[in-house]
Each structure stands twice: as C-alpha cells, then as structure tokens.
Amino acid sequence: MFPKLDPLLHSELRLAVMSILADVESADFTYLKKQTGSTSGNLSVQIDKLTSAGYIAVEKGFKGKIPCTTCRITPAGTEAFNSYVEALKEYLK
C-alpha cells in the first residue's frame, strides 16, 4: 500500500518553497518569489499556510529602510519534507 502524501506539500508552489528552504539557512520573500515565479499574493497565502502548519518560520524585519520577510524551514518542516520525498520514492518503485 502506498504511503499517504502530505496534502500540504502536494501543491506546486508550497512544494517549491519547501524545496528551496530545505537547502538554505533562510531565504527572503523576494528571492522565493523570483525562484518560484509566483505572484506576491499567491506566495503570501502559501507561506501563511506553511507557517500555520509549523513547517516554516517567518521573521519580519527591515533591510535598511525596506521591509523584509525572511523564511526558514523548521525541524518539523524538514521532517515533513523528507517524509514526503520518501513517500514519493515509494510511488515510483
């Protein structure tokens, strides 16, 4: 029987955000937007969902005088991401 895929991660944009954050210490909103090619509104919504699930932590601050939102993956997010990748591999066996 196939393992259940985490529905929160089984979405294109959320999965892309998690993939980026899994490889870096933290990334700001502008970088995530550029790398995923998403719109600000859509990205904000998906980041909120990942934050609510405890998969990422968001820090709002300033870079000089410009507001800056920094995201980093949490240990729970890393675990969920790794489990998701393992589950995907099972599907492809």
Binding site: S11, L15, A22, Y84, V85
Partner: peptide, 28 residues
C-alpha cells in the same frame, strides 16, 4: 506557478529537483 495543481509523484520529484537545482545555481 499555480497554487493548486494535481501532480503525479514523478512531477513532484521533478519539481523538487528543478527548484533545488535552480536555487543552487543562483546561490553558487
């Protein structure tokens, strides 16, 4: 990038791999 789209396991892995590679390329 669309927010809701049904992906197959293959598409998901491809997305992870491509996103990771693009991000790594940009950082390095």
């Amino acid at each position: 990038m669309e927010q809701i789209k049904e992906m197959t396991a293959q598409e998901s892995l491809k997305l992870i791999s491509e996103t990771l590679n693009n991000s790594r390329r940009s950082i390095l």
